[in-house]
Amino acid sequence: MLKRSLISVVSLIVLWQGLIWLYHFPPYILPSPWQVGLVWRHGWPILLQQSIPTLWETMASFILAAVVGSVTALILAYFTWARSWLFPWVLVSQALPTFALAPLLVVWLGYGMSSKIVTALIMMFFPITSAFYDGLRRTKPEWLDLAKTMNAKKTAVLWFICFPAALPNLASGLRVAAVLAPMGAVVGEWVGSSHGLGYLMLNANARMQIDWMFAAVMAITVWTLLLYALVDRILKKLVTWH
């Protein structure tokens, strides 16, 4: 695994450098891996410092999206009326262009963390809700038949059968959300912020510091991969059945 990842990264760097040699791109269009490496070497305290607010926003929005998404899916599964009244709104949340909505959220919620958290939440809400709701609806009919012969209460069937049976689906939704979370936070920062990796990217872009842009993008990628690995590991420990 590590060997394969290393080969992929090295191949990408070689390809990148190859493009520069072949087409002679100036550094303000495409900086070389070496230039970006230098930014990392000298600017890592800044990259780390700017990562902290983005990571807070990422974690907060991920936890919030997990809770809101799960509760919504449970409501959809339990109440028949919710399917016709609530589900269209769940779809709308995904149909809304987050990039267009982000400036509005800054106007409504201010420059602080909350507008970034809500932007990321909107991006993550649908994959979590739809994956979990799908799992809840697909509970083995034989289990439901067995519950029926046991004179089960509807709420009990949801808690003791449908909920655990759908946890592998919820886990899939959370894995997708883990990849979207940092992106959501950065989109929120692009629109209006005074710190964070998105803010760093905006600043670098305005000053044509493309090497810093690349370094920031790499930082976001690394954090995203680490968050995914962490979430995946925790979920594999918690949800051992399929």
Binding site: M150, A152, K153, L167
Partner: peptide, 21 residues
């Protein structure tokens, strides 16, 4: 029809949990 997330004992008791939530 055993529930894979529950222990053997919890599977046996399932009916009791389902009836009384």
């Amino acid at each position: 029809l055993l529930m894979p997330w529950a222990s053997v004992l919890d599977n046996v008791i399932l009916g009791e949990k389902l009836r009384h939530c």
